[in-house]
């Protein structure tokens, strides 16, 4: 039997996917955990940021710095577009609009008529050009057992985690400041905060923008060492992010990051175990059936979390989001 999947699964601790999801989940925690915004379109923010980066880099040949500006601007515009009509309304409307908008983005970028920019269903490769050119690491193999990285992979991991740490410190500072107090007040009761002289709609907009930009930057960290695929930013991505956020604790800063690590390690481990069992005929499943099983597990895990530990790993019981 091949147990190599175990160290490979633990390689997910630092993988680009974990990094990107950690950042996007942190953004979702700002929305959902701290502000109480029901954003069901975080995948849309991820897609908008990712496409803004990939199109400007690959198709227009912009340098890295400007491509990052385009990423941020893209996410900000998307937040304004969704927020202006909905943030004045009750919370439910934002969730309806965001889930739809995220799907609109995904179908739009897949449209063949604009595939010269978006790459259609194939997505975009090669967004790493400037980023790898800046790599100061010597071109050798860096390895830990079965986990080996070339200099470019290691470079993107190091930069990725640096960005995640900076973002975490930023969110932590914001949430302990008077700004964060207003944000958390809005989560509790926005009319009360309004009655105390705070421009609630504008604060909600700022929160939507901040979390959206984090989502967009998350995608950049994923697509630099891999590639941009439109179908990776569907509704299921948003629900992966919710699972991550609830797993770690929606009202915490560390929660979404640790949650992302646990989520991807467990997903890879379960995949490895299932493959092992199916290959050795220990489970009555075909390898085609095996794929969806782990996503069924994700769904069940999300339900169990919300029922039994709504505050997540790092959250305090009393701050649980769903408890009355």
């Amino acid at each position: 039997m091949d147990f190599n999947f175990i160290p490979l699964a633990f390689g997910e601790i630092v993988s680009p996917l974990t990094i990107g999801y950690a950042l996007a989940a942190l953004g979702l925690a700002v929305h959902f955990g701290f502000t109480g915004l029901l954003n069901f379109g975080q995948a849309g923010f991820m897609a908008v940021g990712g496409y803004a980066f990939a199109i400007t880099t690959v198709k227009f040949g912009w340098p890295l710095g400007w491509a990052l500006v385009a990423t941020v601007v893209g996410a900000v515009l998307f937040a304004l577009l969704l927020g202006i009509p909905t943030l004045r309304l009750r919370a439910d409307y934002l969730s309806i609009v965001t889930i739809a908008a995220a799907e609109i983005v995904r179908y739009t970028v897949k449209t063949p008529s604009i595939s010269q920019y978006t790459g259609g269903s194939d997505g975009i490769n090669g967004a790493s050009r400037d980023f790898y050119a800046m790599n100061p690491l010597p071109d050798i193999q860096y390895g830990f057992g079965v986990l080996t990285y070339n200099n470019n992979q290691l470079w993107s991991i190091l930069v990725g985690w640096t960005v995640v740490i900076i973002a975490a410190v930023l969110v932590w500072q914001l949430m302990r400041s008077p700004w964060g107090r207003v944000i958390k007040g809005i989560r509790e009761d926005e009319d009360a905060v309004r009655s105390l002289g705070k421009n609630v709609t504008w604060y909600k907009m700022q929160s939507l923008i901040l979390g959206g930009v984090l989502g967009g930057l998350g995608t950049v960290l994923i697509i630099i060492p891999t590639s941009l695929q439109p179908d990776n930013y569907g509704t299921q991505t948003t629900f992966f992010l919710y699972t991550i956020v609830l797993l770690g604790g929606a009202t915490t800063v560390l929660g979404p990051i640790i949650g992302s690590i646990i989520f991807w390690v467990v997903l890879q481990l379960s995949d490895g175990i299932l493959t092992l069992l199916v290959n050795n005929h220990l489970l009555p499943l075909s390898s085609v059936q095996q794929g969806p099983i782990r996503f069924i597990i994700v769904g069940i895990a999300l339900m169990l979390l919300v029922i039994f530990r709504p505050q997540g790993i790092f959250g305090k019981k009393r701050e649980a989001h769903f408890s009355g």
Partner: peptide, 12 residues
Amino acid sequence: RTFQLTKALSLL
């Protein structure tokens, strides 16, 4: 103003 149904921000 204050409200008829009290609006204490429970988790602050």
